[in-house]
Amino acid sequence: MTKPKISVGAVIDEPGSTIKNKTGGWRSFRPIIDHKKCIKCGTCWQFCPDNAINENFEVNYDYCKGCGICANECPVKAIKMVKEEK
């Protein structure tokens, strides 16, 4: 993590700073999408609270925190949560 600048009162005066804060490291379970099962309904894309699934239903692992909401909501059970191992 790079050191962000220290401003008075932690005020952020430029938009888009969340992009710099990669939260993928928080993840203990990784969503794996089985594209053969996927019906491209968009439910995972819509539900992802971190906007970490794109329109092609690919996961951005830089930001996915592994909450598992996508796997829970998938109507055809095409998303599996797999334990992260180092």
Binding site: I12, D13, S17
Partner: peptide, 21 residues
């Protein structure tokens, strides 16, 4: 004021401060 909420010049106040800051 040094800073204030203003729709013409949006800022974020009171964000998270991670352990590194």
């Amino acid at each position: 004021p040094l800073f204030k909420l203003d729709t013409k010049k949006p800022i974020t106040m009171g964000p998270i401060g991670f352990p590194n800051t």
